[in-house]
């Protein structure tokens, strides 16, 4: 069994992402940035900065080629990722289940719904309690599971984004081939979907995602989990308390569990006795 807690210099670090996942993420991140840089000047072609930025990334002769190449690689990554996820779930969970108890449709659906990245009822509850917490109505920070609703959002938004943007991009790229199955008007709609969805994705990633992983007060100036794959104990307590307690208990550090966020030091002594 792989241990999830690594101790370096008396500090605990919690395992989050495998090397494969981290490499996938870095490729995704750099491709998205390239795509945004080579695509956005076209959407905002009438602004003063668009020609400067566009010429910086290659101008009208080079930038479209870069954009298409990056898009192609991203679509390959998308396909690889889907295959990767299916294999991981199949080999890691479905096969053992089959060997142990036998497989039925109900069990399979149940297993898929319980995947850590699938949004569930707890996420809705967490959002509500987060809003309460943000308005100072309670001192309790929602106790996040292995993946919080923010992370699920960060996962599924690009997932749907790549599917939509990739498909419409392919249509616009191969307009002659597309005209065999689709009417020309669909290309009009493809352009709207491609550029509007891309703007949403870019703003979502560069504002919301970067705020959560780099700019917020507890991780500023930069979160390192996307490089190291391990998350520090403070951040674990803050965002994934439920999972933190689970892991600490499982790996035999039950007596060292820290109190959740929102306790001051006076209270923390008493709460320790609760566990």
């Amino acid at each position: 069994m792989k241990r999830h807690i690594k101790i370096v210099n008396d500090k605990k670090y919690f395992f989050r992402f495998t090397v494969n996942q981290r490499i996938q993420h870095v490729i995704l991140a750099s491709l998205v940035m390239i795509l945004v840089l080579t695509g956005m000047p076209l959407k905002f072609h009438d602004t003063f900065w668009a020609p400067y930025l566009y010429n910086l990334v290659g101008g009208i002769t080079i930038a479209p080629i870069i954009h298409r190449m990056a898009g192609t690689v991203l679509l390959c990554l998308f396909v690889y990722h889907v295959i990767y996820m299916v294999t991981v779930i199949y080999k890691g969970q479905i096969v053992p289940l089959k060997n142990k108890k036998g497989l039925s449709l109900v069990k399979l659906v149940k297993l898929l719904i319980n995947q850590p990245l699938i949004p569930n009822l707890k996420d809705a509850k967490d959002i509500l309690s987060l809003i309460k917490y943000l308005f100072f109505m309670t001192g309790e920070h929602p106790e996040g599971a292995r993946f919080t609703w923010k992370e699920k959002f960060d996962y599924w938004a690009p997932f749907w984004g790549i599917a939509i943007i990739g498909m419409t991009g392919l249509i616009m790229w191969n307009e002659e081939a597309a005209s065999m199955f689709l009417t020309g008007e669909i290309i009009n709609y493809a352009l709207i979907a491609h550029s509007d969805e891309a703007l949403l994705a870019a703003l979502f990633l560069f504002i919301w995602h970067w705020y959560n992983v780099h700019y917020s007060l507890s991780v500023f100036p930069m979160g390192t989990v996307f490089i190291t794959g391990y998350l520090s104990e403070e951040l674990m307590v803050e965002e994934h308390y439920e999972y933190y307690v689970e892991m600490m208990t499982k790996e035999g550090y039950k007596d060292q569990i820290l109190p959740p966020l929102g306790y001051d030091k006076g209270e923390s002594e008493t709460t320790k006795e609760l566990f």
């Binding site: 987060l130 809003i131 917490y133 943000l134 308005f135 100072f136 109505m137 309670t138 001192g139 309790e140 938004a157 949403l200 703003l203 979502f204 504002i207 919301w208 705020y211 917020s216 007060l217 507890s218 966020l261 929102g262 306790y263 001051d264 209270e267 709460t271």
Partner: peptide, 26 residues
Amino acid sequence: TLLPLLGIMLLDSIRRLFPTLSRRRK
């Protein structure tokens, strides 16, 4: 999508300045 998230971001950055301040403590 963006406006609620921006709202949460703003509130979050304020809330982090006063981690123990709330009407009801645990």
